[in-house]
Computed example of a mutant assay.
Amino acid sequence: MAEVLFRNFTEFANSPTMVTSTEKNVEPYDMIFSLWEGVLVTAILGILCVFGLIANAVTFFVICTSKTLRKSSFNILIMSLCVSDFLSALNSPFQMYRRIWGFLEFELPVGFCKFTIGLGTWTMFVTVQHILVFSVFRLLAMQFPNKIGRITPKIAKITAVVIWIEVFIVSALFYIMTSSVIPYKPGRYKTACTSVSKDWRPIAAEYTTYALPILLFAPFIGILLCAIIITYILIKIRKRRATQHTTNNKQKQEQERMALIQVTLIVLSFFIGYSVESVYRMTKALDLRDLFTVRTKWVTLTTAYVLLRVSECLNPLFYNFGSSQMREKTKQFLRTGDVSSAPNSISSPTMKTASPHKTTVV
């Protein structure tokens, strides 16, 4: 298998002519990527894959085995997000092969192509909707701190299950049906494992027009607006207290400071992971694909995927950064392999949320 892949890639790299981004206008162009670029991206994704698997598994286990942490409805949602990020990391080797070493000739069965595209789409939009829910809950907790307790762990579990089922039916299932492996031929500009086969292109164009605004663009805007409103409210509270010379204890000041830092990090992480992907999908929805050559398309999509994996690897770090209680539980687990003896009395800088996606000040 490895010899076949290397031979195919070598022949491709030494090919004097390739194609542009459209089937109607075939012209010579430089090779899509060099061997060292493929090796570099593979190494980066390999490291992110290992880290993502370990970090999300540890975070999930720490919450699941801690009686204190799993009582929080927000931590239930974090566990669900950990599952999404874990599956995304697990899917990385298949995505790596599809985007790099199997770009011209996908040697695996069609089922693997459908699996990696379906799972990749599923986990991406599940993560987006989880972050949107976190952002809305966080904003509600700031506006109605006395009522946020009504969001019980049971409600959180139902919310998570609904998100998983809804995204699978609306998005993942569609791409499982439309994805296929196309045979290699000179002048082909698509990846061998394509998300939309030729027979599905008219339907896919209509689907993209209506689905992307709902699944990606609207949540993207919603998360940004929530972050801006929350930051504004926190700054306003701090200014009002400073003007009124209100006595404020150090713990409260620390909570507000952590909330501001967390909001900044969350928005930064989300934009790192989804901005390039969103921009590319926007050009696709607007039928502006002629802006890309095959080379720039590969660079854009590969960069988007790497940044998405970076963002998903940052999530477990932010979970621990956002809650001193979870941080202590994680340290205890890494030292002893058990969280039952970890301190339970350590207060979190956020309202029982222990999540970077809902930095709510009490």
Rank of each mutant, 00 (worst) to 15 (best):
I237Y: 10
T152C: 06
L132G: 04
R138L: 02
C82F: 10
F217T: 09
V62T: 07
C226W: 04
P219E: 04
I158Q: 08
A172D: 06
T152G: 05
F61S: 13
T283H: 12
M351W: 12
N75L: 15
I214C: 13
G149D: 14
K147I: 00
P16I: 00
L291R: 06
S84V: 10
A43K: 03
I182S: 13
L234Q: 13
K185Q: 14
T68I: 07
I32N: 02
I44Y: 04
I54H: 10
P316K: 03
A55F: 11
S135F: 01
V306A: 05
S88H: 05
F174S: 04
T360R: 01
I221A: 13
E23D: 15
L139F: 10
D290I: 08
G111P: 03
Y184L: 02
F103T: 00
F270A: 09
P219D: 05
S171P: 00
F174L: 06
V4L: 13
T296R: 01
V83E: 00
K71A: 14
R335H: 09
I346N: 04
V267M: 15
N91L: 14
A304P: 12
T17S: 13
E312C: 10
R257V: 00
G118I: 03
N320I: 02
A43S: 07
I229L: 15
W36L: 02
S171I: 10
T303K: 02
F94L: 15
S347R: 15
V306C: 11
K236Y: 08
I131H: 00
C193T: 11
T231M: 14
V167D: 03
Y97E: 08
F318S: 00
K239M: 04
V170C: 07
R138D: 02
G273D: 02
W164F: 15
M258I: 05
I237F: 08
V58K: 09
H130D: 00
E256K: 05
P219F: 06
H245G: 00
M31L: 14
F217H: 12
Q262E: 04
R201Y: 11
A342T: 08
A342Q: 09
I223R: 04
Q255R: 11
L308R: 06
I346W: 06
I169N: 01
T22H: 06
I229T: 15
V361K: 01
R238N: 13
V62K: 05
F94H: 04
N146D: 15
L215Y: 06
M326G: 05
F112R: 01
I151A: 07
L108A: 10
N248Q: 15
V279M: 11
F144M: 09
V196W: 07
I221W: 04
S180H: 12
T231N: 14
L212I: 15
A172G: 08
L69D: 03
S275H: 08
I233S: 02
T283A: 11
Q244F: 03
A242V: 07
G38T: 03
K24E: 12
L53S: 07
K114V: 01
M258D: 03
L104I: 09
S324K: 07
V58G: 10
T247D: 08
I272L: 13
I229W: 14
S73E: 02
E277I: 11
T300K: 10
N8R: 12
A304L: 09
A285P: 08
I182T: 14
N8H: 12
T194P: 10
S355I: 00
M351S: 13
M96S: 12
V4G: 00
V126G: 01
I223S: 03
T178V: 09
M258N: 11
R257S: 08
I230A: 13
